[in-house]
Amino acid sequence: MHELGVVIEVIKTVESFAQQNGLTKIDTLVLQIGELSSMIPKYIEACYPAAVDGTLLQDTRLKIEILPGNAICKKCNKVFNLIKNNMVCPSCTSKDWEILCGREFMIKEIIAC
């Protein structure tokens, strides 16, 4: 369980961004989490209220977008979802592939004024 520490980091980053840009109210915070990252959206949501308590983001809503964990097969060049296909290429059953996306953990945007 390392989500709380990481969410606290996110809050710090957003707070300093808000200060630098003269923002006073943040309505929504949008995070992007890859399916292959070690961050579990459910846990992020669970620890979010504790992490924002007493900060500028206290009343900010949290929105999480999931990015697919896709890979390209090195044998047949098929692009496929690793989770749905059990880490095996669905067209040629090769396990030799390269990750294209899905490890991300990004602060995508904020809705603020």
Binding site: E9, K12, V14, K25, M106, I107, E109, I111, C113
Partner: peptide, 18 residues
């Protein structure tokens, strides 16, 4: 009524630590 706008940040959470 405050006007809210969408502000793109596009920053990896690990970037600060890196």
């Amino acid at each position: 009524m405050d006007t809210y706008k969408i502000i793109e940040i596009k920053q990896s959470v690990f970037e600060d630590n890196n």
